[in-house]
Simulated assay, not measured.
Amino acid sequence: MADRLDTPKEARRSLLPKIRLDQDAFGKVSEGIARFMGTPRFLVWLSLFCLAWIAWNTWAPATVQFDKAALGFTALTLMLSLQASYAAPLILLAQNRQTDRDRVTMEQDRQRSERNLADTEFLAREMAALRIALNDVATRDFVRSEMRNLLEELVAEREADREAERDAERERDVEHDGVGGPREPRTGDVS
């Protein structure tokens, strides 16, 4: 008995051969038919067909009528039932294919939305980094004010140096001449 469980079953032959159909091709054909059946043109053609059927089987000679009005147009009823019995599965098949396409489209839209969100978040982070970096960058007004301050400091230092030179010169003169008297000309001075 254990031998049988680990061996696959042999393929059984059925009385009817299996019909292999290309699912995509069959789906496209069924969608085309379902799409056509949903148009006003189909309704007009079906109405004309029914009117012609009824007119032929009502007013044509009895020998050429094939669906008697006395029997309630049984063949026409059967034809319309047959058309409806094929239309319903074709419409369902077309709806299933449309549902599959919608599912794929929604998945692609979701992925695109995720990429857009990731891109937007990346750009927002980059913008924040740029703002932070720009806070550390000196503005034109700041640079001008710093240059003005440096210039004022340089001018003040030069004035201080000149004043210090004058003071040093006065001190030399005072030391040389005495405490406040007029200075005597030195041997190298020209007066």
Rank of each mutant, 00 (worst) to 15 (best):
D109N: 14
D109V: 04
D109M: 12
D109E: 04
D109L: 15
R110Y: 11
R110A: 09
R110N: 07
R110L: 05
R110E: 10
R110Q: 13
Q111M: 07
Q111V: 08
Q111G: 13
Q111D: 04
Q111R: 09
R112M: 10
R112L: 04
R112E: 03
R112Q: 05
R112F: 10
S113N: 11
S113W: 11
S113M: 06
S113A: 08
S113Y: 02
S113I: 03
S113P: 00
S113V: 04
E114N: 05
E114K: 08
E114D: 10
R115C: 02
R115F: 01
N116W: 15
N116K: 15
N116Y: 14
N116F: 15
L117F: 13
L117P: 03
A118I: 02
A118H: 05
A118T: 00
A118Y: 00
A118K: 02
D119A: 12
D119Y: 12
D119G: 01
D119C: 03
D119Q: 04
D119L: 11
D119S: 09
D119T: 09
T120D: 12
T120N: 07
E121M: 00
E121C: 05
E121Q: 12
F122A: 11
F122M: 13
F122W: 15
L123K: 03
L123F: 09
L123P: 06
L123G: 02
L123H: 13
L123Y: 09
L123Q: 13
L123E: 12
A124L: 06
A124R: 07
R125M: 12
R125L: 00
E126T: 08
E126N: 04
E126D: 10
M127I: 10
M127Y: 13
M127V: 14
A128W: 10
A128G: 01
A128H: 11
A128D: 03
A129K: 11
A129N: 08
A129W: 04
L130Y: 12
R131V: 10
R131D: 06
R131A: 01
R131W: 02
R131Y: 08
I132D: 14
I132G: 10
I132K: 13
I132R: 14
A133H: 11
A133R: 00
A133P: 01
A133C: 05
L134T: 01
L134Q: 13
L134Y: 13
L134A: 06
L134K: 12
L134M: 12
L134H: 10
N135P: 01
N135S: 01
N135I: 00
N135M: 15
D136R: 09
D136F: 10
D136C: 07
D136T: 00
D136M: 03
V137E: 04
V137Y: 04
V137T: 06
V137H: 04
V137P: 00
V137S: 00
A138H: 10
T139A: 00
T139D: 00
T139Q: 04
T139R: 02
T139N: 01
R140K: 14
R140D: 10
D141K: 01
D141Y: 08
D141H: 07
D141Q: 05
F142R: 14
F142M: 15
F142N: 03
V143Y: 06
R144W: 11
R144Q: 06
S145R: 15
S145K: 14
S145F: 06
S145Y: 13
S145I: 04
S145G: 05
E146L: 01
E146P: 00
E146N: 02
E146Q: 05
M147F: 13
M147I: 07
M147L: 15
M147S: 01
M147T: 06
M147Y: 11
